[in-house]
């Protein structure tokens, strides 16, 4: 198994001018990075070399109406390209992920900026909708 198959995405991050750290273990390859102060991650599983996930997780504001949160989540899932939105950890967090089936991470590299934009936009829209009356 190629233990460095996320290397092209490390290069993509470098091209974007971002720092990153690796945190690989027996099960998964992981990259963590920040952009504009927000935290993101990339995950690939050793037993599924074609799977690559890019994501970010956010805490929900305390007291957020769960039904409303679920409605917003569903609406984003229906409308946004690429991104999957899910309530997570006892529904206290919201997770934005892009899950891809690729021959290699090199395929993702030229589109990495766009994927980051999609993640940012999804989170921005989610919280804007949550804040709106």
């Amino acid at each position: 198994m190629d233990s460095d198959r996320l290397a092209p995405l490390e290069l993509a991050l470098e091209e974007e001018g971002l720092f990153c750290t690796r945190d690989d273990d027996a099960d998964a390859l992981r990259i963590a990075f920040k952009s504009e102060g927000d935290r993101y991650f990339i995950v690939s599983y050793r037993d599924d070399p074609n799977f690559v996930m890019v994501g970010s997780g956010w805490s929900l504001p305390e007291g957020a109406d769960r039904e409303r949160v679920a409605r917003i989540t569903n609406a984003l899932n229906a409308r946004k390209k690429f991104v999957k939105v899910a309530l997570w950890e006892d529904e206290n967090d919201v997770l934005f992920t892009i899950e891809l089936c690729v021959g290699g991470a090199e395929e993702v590299r030229p589109h990495f900026g766009r994927l980051l934009d999609v993640l940012r936009d999804a989170a921005t829209e989610f919280f804007a909708e949550l804040r709106s009356a």
Partner: peptide, 13 residues
């Protein structure tokens, strides 16, 4: 220099 550290702490080279 302080601002450079801030930008780096936000994830950017």
């Amino acid at each position: 220099e302080e601002l450079a550290r801030f930008i780096q702490s936000e994830g950017h080279r």
